[in-house]
Design a protein around this nucleic acid. Structure first.
Lengths: 339, 339
DNA sequence: CTGTTAGCGCCTTCAG
DNA sequence: CTGAAGGCGCTAACAG
């Protein structure tokens, strides 16, 4: 690899390395003619400054890391899209890390990155994460960090998320208004604040509407086949739930699968609503009522806030805890039926 | 940021920097006792070597780049998942770049990375890419590169893909055997070899079965609303297509949307099959027949091959052009109906 | 087995 | 306006 570097340019132009460097960075103390000559040759030879050298020298990497539980998930894909809508303009690069919902991996990744490889990180914590020391330590080290979606209210770190509790309340209320009286909540295992917010919204709605049946909080996993087993049991118990509120898109899919298998009809036998960012939800049989999260915006705003911290700008109060509203879309899966 | 570095460790231990460096890299020429002392302190202080310094010194970055057209697409998400199944074991980091199907962006990204920031790249080219000089130039510079899915047979570069032509043939044949006589192909604009392979499979099937109706190759775009307009026109013409073969998942979704709007029934009025990696395809109304690509495996194998090149190992002949088979799943959208 | 030395390529004083 | 020199942190060649 015959890399062109500053030295080569300097020699070719009979200039000092420092002059070339300054010319390329458009320093005001270089004559226009010299700048022009330098730029011309640099262009011609396709010069690209060695990023490791400048990172080493300047102690910044022009790189951020995005740490997410999984990627086969519309929500996180859309978030990445949102992040990518700002990074190139900032001249930044994006590293992706997957924790696969494993706390140990999450902790190790953060540890691995604590050496200047990145200028900042964006994290959506795994659902097996109960101890937030690794986040705290990172933050304490003064390295820019934002949490999104799977956030934590306990730490003094910018949180970017949606109005989970409110939408969970509305979703449950929606099911109640459509006649459900025995609503099960399908959530993640773990003790994430996002789960708690959604659970709380569900419980508040049951309470407000004085539903006699006890709440049913079902904790599902990352494995489809386990979830289907659990759901089968759920549907075979008496009284059978007549409403399902899935806090995760994947779980709604699992519920549909099991209903099909058990020949339960949606929405006649059971109504379903779910947090979901799947465009194709409208094409389901029946069309799935969803709460659409502003995933792209969450990614974009989280990135913007991270860059503000990296650039040492002051954050506005609302940027420390930003809540972007979701939208409830009513479809056939929660329609009222004659039955 | 009070970074610990080799110098600090060396001073603390009364050793030379090089000794500490060697101890940490488990060099055979360091006494076990010294290694132990060094490791202990390094552990205690949470030492992480500065990656920019070693990258600069060793001229390698332990980083690869994945360059894809878009990320809100199950296929590419699953590919990334596959890639990520090998990178951490190799001690490698993954940068993500999106071209948004824009040739200029693709070219610029490759240019941007030609400075040692990455040790290799994995590319799935954009559909607006007709000129492959940027790929060729990258390859000529001797930097490791593999193409996946959206590949090019013209370049002497490892290609990892699925059996597109064969599956396109089978999909078309499947529609024919289910009674379709007027099948439209929905593909991407552009002249990608993947599109050509799928188109070719479609045309071969029509030819082999001596279908009298002329082939209908419909080119759709990245914008849903444009696609819906085009499809509406398609369905309003006479004779109306009685079969749709979508080369891209998104286009099948668009077709479903339009059928719904026009009150066309699938599969009675028109049968639909599509390349798709959407788990929820089985839940569509009606369940969508799909050709499932081995996306995860493509990602994993492409990464493995890239690492072989990076490690300067010889490639087996089959690794230069690896074809991983897809699977056709027949569902209700192509069922035979009484009508 | 350990220490000394010399860069990797870039940026930033400090001198002219 | 330009040049010379030093050093970011790490590794590798060369001594001992």
């Amino acid at each position: 690899m015959d890399q062109v570097n500053l030295k080569k340019l300097a020699k070719e132009l009979n200039l000092a390395v420092s002059t070339v460097s300054r010319a390329l960075r458009d320093s005001h103390e270089i004559s226009p003619q010299t700048k022009e000559r330098v730029r011309e040759l640099a262009e011609k030879l396709g010069f690209q400054p060695n990023p490791h050298a400048s990172s080493l020298r300047q102690n910044k990497s022009k790189t951020i890391a995005v740490i997410i539980p999984e990627i086969e998930n519309n929500f996180f894909s859309q978030v990445i899209n949102g992040i990518e809508s700002v990074t190139p303009n900032k001249g930044y690069h994006v590293l992706i890390y997957l924790t696969h919902e494993d706390y140990n991996k999450e902790r190790d990744i953060l540890q691995l990155l604590r050496n200047g490889r990145v200028d900042g990180i964006m994290v959506s914590v795994s659902n097996t994460t109960t101890n937030l020391d690794h986040i705290e330590a990172w933050h304490a080290a003064g390295i820019p960090l934002v949490l999104f979606d799977r956030t934590s209210e306990d730490l003094d770190v910018p949180n970017i998320m949606t109005n989970d509790a409110e939408m969970a309340f509305k979703a449950t209320e929606h099911l109640l208004k459509r006649g459900c009286r025995n609503i099960a909540y399908l959530g993640m295992t773990g003790n994430l604040s996002i789960s708690n917010r959604r659970k709380a919204g569900y419980l508040t709605a049951l309470e407000k509407y004085k539903v006699p049946a006890p709440p049913q909080i079902i904790e599902l996993t990352a494995k489809d086949y386990i979830n289907r087993d659990i759901l089968k049991q759920l549907f075979e118990q008496q009284p059978r739930p007549d409403g399902i509120f899935a806090a995760i898109e994947k779980f709604a899919v699992n519920a549909y699968e099991v209903c099909k298998e058990l020949h339960l009809h949606i929405p006649q036998d059971v109504k379903v609503i779910s947090f979901s960012n799947l465009q194709a939800a409208a094409l389901f049989d029946p069309a799935l009522s969803t709460i659409i999260q502003p995933a792209y915006d969450i990614g974009r705003e989280a990135a913007n806030i991270l860059f503000k911290i990296i650039e040492k700008k002051m954050l506005m109060p609302y940027e420390k805890k930003m809540v972007l509203p979701s939208q409830l879309i009513e479809r056939a899966s929660t329609a009222v039926t004659g039955k």
